[in-house]
Design a protein around this nucleic acid. Sequence first.
DNA 1: TCTATTGCTTGAGATGCTCAAGCAACGCCG
DNA 2: CGGCGTTGCTTGAGCATCTCAAGCAATAGA
Lengths: 150, 150
Amino acid sequence: MAETIRTIPTKAQLMERLADSFSGYYGDFSLAAADAGLSASQAKTLGVLRTAPASMRALATTLACDASNITGIVDRLEKRELVRREVSPTDRRVKNVVLTTAGEETVDAIRARMHTTHAALDALDDADRAVLHDLLGRVFCGARGPRSAT
Amino acid sequence: MAETIRTIPTKAQLMERLADSFSGYYGDFSLAAADAGLSASQAKTLGVLRTAPASMRALATTLACDASNITGIVDRLEKRELVRREVSPTDRRVKNVVLTTAGEETVDAIRARMHTTHAALDALDDADRAVLHDLLGRVFCGARGPRSAT
DNA sequence: TCTATTGCTTGAGATGCTCAAGCAACGCCG
DNA sequence: CGGCGTTGCTTGAGCATCTCAAGCAATAGA
């Protein structure tokens, strides 16, 4: 990989870049979701569940909205059999929302249809992709940096 | 900066990381917007306008939604004097939406209140921030890579 | 047990969103 | 010039999303 020369961005520039990036990603995402006949909120919810099942409460926290909101979204997803409510065995108040097989396929199909994002990622080489994956993990997922060979 | 060792993520892993990252960003963003008394859509619209004024049509394209949708959002933003409609001098059909000073301050205030994101960015050093800024630009803004010193 | 808390749902009211329809301004072409 | 298709925005209908307040069932703690 080449040594690169960059100017250091200010914090405000970086925030603006994040906002622009998010805007671009979200546009691509919601168009892909619409292709699958889903709203952005529904697709976002499916996406969260792709990693692991979650309770209604956990979904509300992750999506930063009121729990009553999740009730309606999950109602509609359940009606389409993309998702299933399962009463928690350890706490009968809790309902765990689980993706059905059709639900998993839908998430994958939506991600596959994000043509703009895919094309952009294709323009990166493996090393850049690795760096991006790592940096995003550290910023948004609280991951530690990779092993350092200093 | 240290030489680092990373494993190469698959495309699917990278897509999932992007989804998680934007989920995290969106949560932080919409909480900050709510602090300012704005919905996520309203705040997103203001954010787009922070870079430059745009016509209703351009906003609809950028936000990947119907133009009639923008009418309502801009109506409400205008009612709060965060935004102004200006008839284009070159095409009287077109209305350019421009941020007021209060609007600019609101965007900046929202970005400043994104504590989770700020804290995460603070954990990066300057070099990492530069790399992140560059990679996001190449993926989502169609920017070319930085000058290479290979 | 009694009580406070937690997880989910319901209903009301505002906003977001898409579609179809409509008006005004533009552009082109005869 | 005059006609005519196109474009930019708005309106209205209909449903989804979202917040808030209220309510019920199950849990946890005293």
